[in-house]
Amino acid sequence: MICSWNRATLTALLLTLFATQAQAASVSGSASFQGQAPAAEPIKMEADPSCKALHADGIAADDVIVNANGTLKNVFVYVKEGLSGKYEAPKTPVTLDQKGCMYTPKVLGVMAGQPIEIINSDSTLHNVHALPKNSPQFNLGMPLQGMKIKKTLAKPEVMVKVKCDVHPWMASYIGVLDHPFYAVTGEDGSFEIKDLPAGTYVIEAWHEKYGTQTQSITIDDSGKSDVAFQFGV
């Protein structure tokens, strides 16, 4: 009896150690942009004076943002193939804010079933119209400032478009996955996907205008892998 208890403890201990080891790998890199950055079109917000008032100096379209260091912002990078485990969706919501009649963030990742808290920070009204193909679509009115709604997207899908039909320039994209291994490039175009188990993976990078690219990588237990994506013409 004691003996078997000890063995079980030992096994559990070893498993824990092994698991910690196995989750230590990470993939990092950046999405660079080649060629001439397209001129950002100004958004005409005349259709809603309260939106226009929030951008006294005007505002440019956010579909292509080339960073100062020649990298591309808002690229969704995720593990497309190679994972075998099951991952529980977190209960903590991710936030999608409607602010200044634009979506913040423009591109985000979420796990299938994880709550998405949608906020209206504006004094004007918005409708939040999500257009997934794998999960039920929804269209919700958010007429009041400070209003919050929680929604989930049930099935994995890259990407789910979210738009506002009141302000047709508003569009956001949500990468819905059944695992937590994703990242979005920011102001410096870099990304990091942490705590991956060792293995061979297909990593995909998605951009609203420039489409997708994939790369295969193999990482060992504690390894780090560097992946460089190149977008543009």
Partner: peptide, 27 residues
């Protein structure tokens, strides 16, 4: 033509009101 059919998500009321603010697609 303006693709604003879903700019008011509810019906028969509009954003729960008879007269919502006439902005963007709602117009």
């Amino acid at each position: 033509s303006t693709e604003s059919g879903l700019s008011v998500p509810d019906w028969p009321l509009s954003y729960g009101q008879f007269f919502p603010p006439m902005v963007g697609g709602v117009r």
